[in-house]
């Protein structure tokens, strides 16, 4: 099965990776190991998963303003997602971190019905036309 979702382009570019999806917000400073990209917060449903090379789909970032540097550090350490999708709103931490780290970032448009996206799917961000393509593997 394959389908596409429309998004607003916040940071352009194309990206491909396995989907890592959550409905819980993320604090990039306190919940992620910046060297490995592992989510370490025991209270988060993605605890133990790795951001590296993924298409991260999450509502928005919370907490520390330093989270923007955390996103940059993840990229510098080769442990960042390939691309990021915000489902509810794009916060300033994620937007500025992705802008500096050159990580494609889309915000999903609200008018479409967004199905539950499974983690075993592959995602492709087209940051030129503003689409997220999802392929079930």
């Amino acid at each position: 099965m394959e389908y596409s979702l429309k998004g607003k382009i916040i940071v352009g570019g194309t990206a491909k990776g396995m989907i890592l999806s959550t409905t819980q917000p993320i604090n990039f400073l306190s919940s992620v190991d910046h060297r490995t990209g592992k989510i370490t917060d025991k209270n988060h449903e993605l605890c133990g998963k790795f951001l590296k090379d993924s298409i991260l789909i999450f509502p928005y970032a919370v907490g520390s303003s330093v989270g923007a540097y955390s996103i940059f550090a993840l990229k510098s350490n080769g442990a960042s997602p390939s691309g990021i999708i915000c489902t509810l709103k794009t916060d300033i931490t994620t937007a500025s971190g992705c802008a500096i780290a050159n990580i494609p970032l889309l915000e999903l448009c609200k008018y479409q019905v967004i199905p539950e996206i499974e983690n075993s799917s592959e995602g492709i961000i087209d940051g030129v036309s503003g689409y997220l393509q999802i392929k079930k593997v």
């Binding site: 607003k8 382009i9 916040i10 940071v11 709103k89 794009t90 916060d91 300033i92 994620t94 937007a95 500025s96 992705c98 802008a99 500096i100 970032l105 915000e107």
Partner: peptide
């Protein structure tokens, strides 16, 4: 570039 990204986001 940063201001543009956060301007679009908000």
């Amino acid at each position: 570039k940063i201001l543009l990204s956060i301007g679009k986001a908000t």
